[in-house]
Structures are given as structure tokens and as C-alpha cells.
């Protein structure tokens, strides 16, 4: 099963840091998301240069991941196609559970 089937989210940017939310559609899926979508699994997607912190908002059935160094050069200086990293949330939602 892909995370996309049970959760949604949005990516935001500040400087070289991206944040990506992962939100359960249904409360019954929350324990599984909280247990399986760890900072380590997110770090494995983005590689060794990116430092990942995870924050838990249980009343919202939501996780917030903060990815330092995910936006190389910062939004204003980046040579990336998606300089804001807006699409990175779908790389996370593509995770297999």
C-alpha cells in the first residue's frame, strides 16, 4: 500500500529548508502512519545531505517533517526546476507501507 492512499500533505519552503506535512484522512489509519512514517524513512528518500526532524500533532492526526538542506542554494538562488520543492510532498506520499 502507498502512503498516498491513506494520507495527504503539502510542502512549504523557507530558505534552504523544506517542510512536508503528512495527514491521515481517517483516524483509524493514524497509528500505522505514526509508527511507520519515521524520520529515518523520510531521510532515506532524500539522501545523506538532508537532515530530517519529525513533529507529531496527534489531535490533527498529522506529522510535520522539517528537512534542512533539502532546497539546495535556497529558493531564490536555486537552479532546480521546482525551486520551492513544492512537489517533494508526492515523493513522500509515494512511500510504500
Amino acid at each position: 500500500m502507498k502512503l498516498h492512499e491513506i494520507a495527504h500533505g503539502r510542502a512549504g519552503d523557507k530558505g534552504t529548508t523544506s517542510n512536508i506535512s503528512v495527514i491521515a484522512y481517517r483516524p483509524e489509519d493514524w497509528p500505522r502512519i505514526e509508527a511507520e512514517v519515521t524520520a529515518e524513512r523520510i531521510a532515506a528518500i532524500f539522501g545523506p545531505d538532508v537532515q530530517v526532524d519529525r513533529y507529531v500533532l496527534p489531535q490533527l492526526f498529522a506529522l510535520n517533517f522539517v528537512l534542512k538542506n533539502a532546497l539546495k542554494g535556497g529558493v531564490t538562488r536555486s537552479v532546480a526546476l521546482d525551486a520551492h520543492g513544492k512537489g517533494l510532498v508526492y515523493a513522500v506520499l509515494d512511500m510504500r507501507l
Binding site: 503539502r10 512549504g12 517542510n19 506535512s21 495527514i23 500533532l57 498529522a62 510535520n64
Partner: peptide, 8 residues
């Protein structure tokens, strides 16, 4: 989604 947008 909007609450967590650009939040650390």
C-alpha cells in the same frame, strides 16, 4: 494542510 504550510 494550510496550518502546517511553511511551519517548522
Amino acid at each position: 494542510e494550510q496550518l502546517l504550510y511553511e511551519l517548522h
